Simulated scan of single mutants.
Amino acid sequence: MKALSKACLFFCLVVSFYYKGQVSDILAYLKSFETNKIQYIGHPLTKLLNDMIQLQPKSVWSTSIYYSHFNFCKVDNSTDIGTVNMVIYWQLPIPESESEYYSNKNQFYFTNDEKNFYGSKTVKDIYVYTTK
């Protein structure tokens, strides 16, 4: 029984370190775009998305006409602690009816529809953070 307990503990530690490593890798990767945001400000979002070759958003949440939250995990996990998010502030406000259409159509998933819709919008600023 002791061996089983030790094995379970070891497994939990390995999974924990693996998960933290993934989050920190994702955060570092996305932070590099935030650091170099001057390359994307004033350009369509497609420029940023095309440069993000290792990772693409999984969902998008537009809670304001001025910015959108892009998540890089499953929609079901998007509010979990430690989730990495990228906020894109838009040069021009996006009418709520337009962003709401895609949210309802695809249940917040970042599909080709969203990629085409948001891809044509001009980036004003980029901010990356993790939920706490």
Score class of each variant (00 low, 15 high):
residue 2 K to A: 14
residue 2 K to R: 13
residue 2 K to Y: 14
residue 3 A to L: 14
residue 4 L to A: 11
residue 5 S to W: 13
residue 6 K to E: 14
residue 6 K to P: 03
residue 9 L to M: 09
residue 9 L to S: 13
residue 12 C to T: 11
residue 13 L to R: 08
residue 13 L to W: 12
residue 14 V to L: 14
residue 14 V to N: 05
residue 15 V to M: 06
residue 16 S to L: 10
residue 17 F to R: 11
residue 18 Y to H: 13
residue 19 Y to G: 05
residue 19 Y to H: 12
residue 19 Y to F: 12
residue 21 G to F: 01
residue 23 V to E: 07
residue 23 V to C: 07
residue 27 L to S: 12
residue 28 A to Y: 15
residue 29 Y to H: 05
residue 29 Y to N: 08
residue 32 S to Y: 05
residue 36 N to Y: 09
residue 37 K to N: 03
residue 39 Q to T: 09
residue 39 Q to M: 11
residue 41 I to W: 06
residue 43 H to M: 05
residue 44 P to G: 03
residue 44 P to W: 03
residue 44 P to S: 05
residue 44 P to F: 00
residue 46 T to H: 10
residue 48 L to G: 01
residue 48 L to R: 01
residue 48 L to Y: 00
residue 50 N to M: 04
residue 51 D to Y: 04
residue 52 M to Q: 03
residue 54 Q to D: 13
residue 59 S to L: 08
residue 60 V to R: 04
residue 63 T to P: 04
residue 63 T to L: 11
residue 64 S to H: 06
residue 64 S to L: 04
residue 64 S to I: 01
residue 65 I to F: 12
residue 69 H to Q: 09
residue 69 H to D: 14
residue 69 H to M: 09
residue 70 F to N: 00
residue 70 F to W: 04
residue 71 N to P: 03
residue 73 C to E: 13
residue 73 C to D: 13
residue 74 K to R: 13
residue 76 D to K: 15
residue 78 S to I: 06
residue 80 D to W: 13
residue 87 V to L: 10
residue 88 I to Q: 01
residue 90 W to R: 04
residue 90 W to P: 00
residue 95 P to Y: 12
residue 96 E to S: 13
residue 97 S to F: 14
residue 98 E to M: 12
residue 98 E to Y: 15
residue 99 S to K: 01
residue 100 E to C: 12
residue 101 Y to W: 15
residue 104 N to L: 15
residue 104 N to P: 05
residue 106 N to Q: 08
residue 107 Q to I: 05
residue 109 Y to T: 07
residue 109 Y to W: 10
residue 112 N to S: 13
residue 115 K to L: 03
residue 119 G to S: 04
residue 122 T to E: 08
residue 123 V to C: 03
residue 124 K to T: 00
residue 125 D to K: 04
residue 126 I to Y: 05
residue 126 I to V: 08
residue 127 Y to K: 14
